[in-house]
Amino acid sequence: MNAKFFLWAAAAGWATTAQPQSYAGLGTEAEGFAIPQPGTQLSFPADHGPHPDFRIEWWYLTANLEGPDDADYGIQWTLFRSALAPGEADGWQSPQIWMAHAAATSQDQHLFAERIARGGVGQAGVRAAPFEAWIDDWQMLSTGESLENISLSAAGNGFSYDLNLTADGPLVLHGDAGYSVKSASGQASHYYSQPHYQISGTLELQQGPVKVTGRGWLDREWSSQPLAEDQSGWDWFSLSFDSGGKLMGFVLRGESGDFTSGTWISPDGTAEPLAPGAFQAAPLEYSDVEGRKIPTRWQTSLPEKGVSVEVQALNPQSWMGTSFSYWEGPVTVTGSHSGTGYLEMTGYE
């Protein structure tokens, strides 16, 4: 579920700096926008495409990669959609705004870039079938019929990547058939993932191009009122264990207590939604990142599956200094299970 509830604020503040109060209240009102309903049957490939009646939506891909010298890398490719008003219109009249973040991370480098676009004029958008998501020259493109085979590319100052992704498992619907509850008071989103990508391609950092292979995780989520009023940020984990299982878990930090949830994904791709409170995460170590104290080593556990692992940032300085800043980067997992994953943390001011 990662991702920027900041987004509304991101769009709202095309020029002003991020103000915590500007996003905190935004989750609550959804006038005119569609509201996620339990029992909604997701249908594909249509739901790979945009849902302009909902306020926010994203196509969010993270990947843990390895170079020929066993060096670890991570990449992020995210396209956000934010609607100023529900629905779609032609040309400049479109109320849809698009924003994208791309990043490439190694142990000692973290490079990122941001793109912003208006909807309706072709500069950015998403098409369900054949699948295509793009903004400027960044794109996620289906090379087959659906999301099973895609090519992914982005380029910013000092980095670029061009990757081929092949899914070797099914789509995963989070929560109740894709209806994912986000707070005790009922805020929710539609949320599904494709966490089974095998990746190969080229990653170019400042020292030159590297052939890379690895695995990737795509998140799809849309909503209109995703945050409860008192929730100020979240810590989100997507972990892929070497044993084949996967864990998605998040902590939404709120004044009236944290809300945690997630999904356990068996090696065969079967998803089990986690009850609130089942997933636990506690910081072990903080790092100074851009003048903030950010937890970059965590103890996470899911007792019912015997999971108790330490999650360590590959590069503690994985700060996304974009219009709306947050921490996002690859992690390594040790303990009861070993593996890799991605960690996203927001709301650390």
Partner: peptide, 28 residues
């Protein structure tokens, strides 16, 4: 395009000064 143009910062500031959400300028 208020999302791209170099003037954006000054315009949004002026709108905020008027107590108007800057992005309202994008909608009828």
């Amino acid at each position: 395009d208020l999302l791209q143009h170099p003037l954006a910062a000054a315009l949004s500031e002026a709108a905020e000064h008027d107590g108007v959400p800057p992005l309202d300028a994008l909608l009828p």
